[in-house]
Design a protein around this nucleic acid. Structure first.
Lengths: 391, 391
DNA sequence: TAAGACTTTTTAAAAATTTTAAAAAGTTAT
DNA sequence: ATAACTTTTTAAAATTTTTAAAAAGTCTTA
């Protein structure tokens, strides 16, 4: 059973694969993969897609997931202020979406609201819950995937037990993880991390998170807290952070900090198109990003500043972990071209050239979809076995 | 052959083991381990050591390396100013040693001097080179274990090709690694890292190095440069580092920095027993450590300062990697009790309590022997197969 | 453009390894 | 002293991998 699940997971990611290819990727012998493939064909979970283009020898037979399967995945991407819900199929396509539902996680009712929104999403689109393989949730905080608990909220807050709440209310297998780890996973499977083994993914959003991939696997540390990038002591200004400490990276290297600084400057009389945009847009970070794209001077200056601090943080990561690649992802990736020069400046200033040369720094090409893709993949990783059970 | 090597390596580390124990540690089935053990017994490489104390069931038969084997390991521990050469047996005992040979690595002849010293060591103690399983070298710098090259020195400098030079001159298999990684390996196998999977080892010496153990293995990063802890931007004073950058940790967190500061203070008229000690001792760090042990106020103050900076560095590591344990090792471990309170102060100031709580910070109990033990183990890891070939 | 050399996938047979079950050897509590 | 329980060791069965051979193509060159 185990092997079949792995095969299905690979086919989800890669869409088409040969027996030889699977055998190599899974480090399992050809005979055993052949046997599993034949059984999956028999069960009509996968289908034969004909022969691959030649690579210089006998052409390989390709297999893919059967696109006639009517099984779906629901994923919920949560950030500090907005929640999005998606319905996807096994071809990595989004079938339905409800994006940017305004939901401040500070609100003690947020957890229950998410459940309500999810229920109405399923009803509205007439989704047969029997056909949902699983529900994936990604959200900020100290999320323990194994216990399903978010330790950033007290036990009284429904967000603490969000996974369990949803799972029992809907009776559908549910899996939860930290937002930055989901984004990192998306980059590993679909983005710039496809062919690197040691990849760091910076999730630039309202805050600034880090997903660490070591030896091709998400690294969670000894107790699941690895990647708390945002609170390392790097800032010289010593401004107070929400965590109670001073000098945290997050204070000067997140979209929030750019927004705060921009708003302060505007209040002090500086001009910025940001204020005009905010009259029509409700999402501050969207307004900031839009202003930057238009070329607003103040906003670009503020974004440059966070870019420099991110670069300083990257210098630290570079020296300690010597990764193949560091990817700037998350909402902030959209203004990557504005961030990049300042990131590079800081890396030049704070890194040993010999070491910095070893790591490629990139802006994600996945943009907004990263979190959704990673969260959906999380369900595949954990509950693809339901495809086998169902038939 | 492969399995036998693994068994011998385990027996080297653990001295006595049962078939069941080996089977579990090596993740190999009992029948196959039994077969290998029987062959090794036949070859007289290992011996039966009788039954283990009971653990509530049938008593296990124990096996160990045959102590009558006359095979040895030579290890060379090199630091910025002193080189030590050791001869050890397979019972982890040091048979001969030549410690603290004064050898400044800045001297372009250092590489050749090391070879000369090694040759005379072997001659002086009448060591039969046929019986040397291998030579292990550990030294500071960007050492690539696979190519055997130290990239911190130019190709003209004999230190660049030290491994090859020694290997060809003596015709004995030689292996080289970075000093901090050797110390980390020693901590993992013999010290505080025995039963933790994610362990960081700070090698406090003339400089300050870091060995990273992730999933029970040395982590080298994408290109072998992981652990360049000493040059992350953490200092506020912006003093210039030898690497050319400003704000590097090393400038304020190494024994060198404590020595420099102490000497400056003495020149400015402050009293310290360090100056008296230096009249009889040639090794500055030994003098510093001795002064600290005696209770010299100035030295203790200066050591406290480096402790605080190390603690700040530890805070960064803590947040990013969430290890089970961080061990302060190397020469500086001897003054651990003086460092510790300031390390703890800094960790309290710069870490999120929830995260800091997860990681135990310890002073090494291996003291000076760490580097030697790690370097010797390096030979076992790479050349234990010579035991099999020889017979 | 056809033949031979070369690649790669697939199938089949042999070898190795693991898993499972049973036996052996102790220990501990009553 | 015996029954119940543990743990190691041995033996047999089941899996898995490795190796070799066959099948199916591609590509170069005469």
């Amino acid at each position: 059973m185990e092997l079949k699940e792995k095969i299905l997971t690979y086919l989800y990611y890669l869409k088409e694969q040969s027996i030889a290819g699977l055998s190599k990727s899974l480090a399992k012998s050809t005979p055993i993969v052949t046997k599993a493939i034949n059984e999956l064909l028999e069960q009509k979970i996968i289908v034969d897609k004909g022969l691959a283009a030649s690579t210089g020898g006998r052409r390989a037979a390709l297999y893919s997931l059967n696109e006639n399967l009517d099984n779906f995945i629901v994923s919920i991407s949560i950030d500090q202020f907005y929640t999005s819900i998606y319905l996807s199929n096994l071809q990595q396509e989004i079938l339905q979406e409800e994006i940017d539902i305004q939901l401040d996680l500070v609100d003690p009712l947020a957890g229950l609201n998410i459940l309500t929104q999810l229920k109405s999403f399923i009803e509205k689109h007439h989704i047969n819950s029997e056909k949902i393989i699983g529900i994936g949730i990604s959200m900020p905080g100290f999320v323990n995937m194994n216990t399903g608990v978010n330790n950033s909220y007290t036990e009284e807050n429904p967000l603490h037990y969000l996974k369990k709440t949803i799972e029992t209310a809907l009776d559908i297998p549910t899996v939860i993880d930290n937002d930055s780890r989901s984004v990192a996973w998306a980059e590993k499977e679909f983005g710039g991390g496809i062919d690197t083994t040691h990849t760091l993914v910076i999730n630039l959003n309202w805050g600034v998170g880090l997903g660490i991939i070591i030896n091709g696997e998400i690294f969670t540390g000894a107790t699941g807290f690895a990647g708390e990038f945002s609170h390392i002591p790097l800032s010289n200004t010593n401004s107070l952070c929400s965590c109670g400490k001073r000098g945290c990276l997050e204070v000067e290297a997140s979209l929030k900090s750019a927004i705060d600084q921009t708003e302060i400057a505007i209040q002090q009389g500086e001009y910025s198109i940001y204020s005009t945009l905010m009259k029509t847009m409700s999402n501050k970070s969207d307004a900031l990003i839009e202003a930057a794209k238009i070329g607003d001077q103040l906003v670009i200056y503020q974004i440059g500043k966070i870019g420099f601090m991110i670069g300083k943080g990257i210098s630290t990561l570079l020296h300690i972990l010597n990764p193949n690649k560091i990817i700037i992802s998350g909402r902030g990736a959209e203004i990557g071209n504005i961030l990049m020069p300042q990131i590079q400046n800081a890396v030049n200033e704070f890194s040993i050239p010999r070491i910095a040369r070893m790591t490629k720094i990139e802006i994600s090409t996945l943009h907004k979809t990263a979190q959704q893709r990673g969260t959906t993949a999380l369900v595949v990783e954990h509950h693809i076995n339901r495809l086998l059970d169902a038939i």
